[in-house]
Amino acid sequence: MTTKTIRAEYLKGLWDENPVLRQLLGLCPTLAVTGTVITGLAMGLATTFVLILSSLVVSSIKKLIPAQVRIATYIVVIASFVTIADQFLKAFFYPISEALGPYVPLIVVNCIILGRQEAFSSRNSIGRSLIDALGMSTGFLLALLVLSSIREILGAGTFLGYQVMGPWFKPWIIMILPAGAFITLGILLGIALKIESKTKRS
């Protein structure tokens, strides 16, 4: 594998095939836990952990799995890592785990993860799968960070819990409510499409 393909394999997850902004995958956690940066970050990291390890496992045992039971096998692998992540958060980051609620266990059904196993890890080498998983999870994490930063700053006037807006600022409560998640995501998707069409044309 040349350096160039490694770079391309990694970078595609950041923009061209960004799971949230371009593929519109994993929108449930994207909308649900981005009310504050800390929960968005925790969700992004938990998903990163699950995606990377699942991709590693799936790509290393891909030849052994009969095609008929591949989805079942992927799900067992993914669910194991999700449970580990969930237990870990509960044991060492209890408040964050409480704030994320059911959304950590729900990583099992995050389409990004199953989608990458089915579309990539099951037909590529371990190395390439690792790079792909890294790129995809970075893309997911970045999208969650952007979304949660906008929502927390406008919705509470804080960033990671620290006051960033002056006393004149009145928090826009709607931004930390579900409606704010939809509006912000809609605007971000619109901007992403606009940028995409501009770069394609030139």
Binding site: K170, W172, I173, I174, M175, L177, A179
Partner: peptide
Amino acid sequence: AFIQTAFPVA
């Protein structure tokens, strides 16, 4: 509706 939800007290 936006400002009603964003600033319910005001």
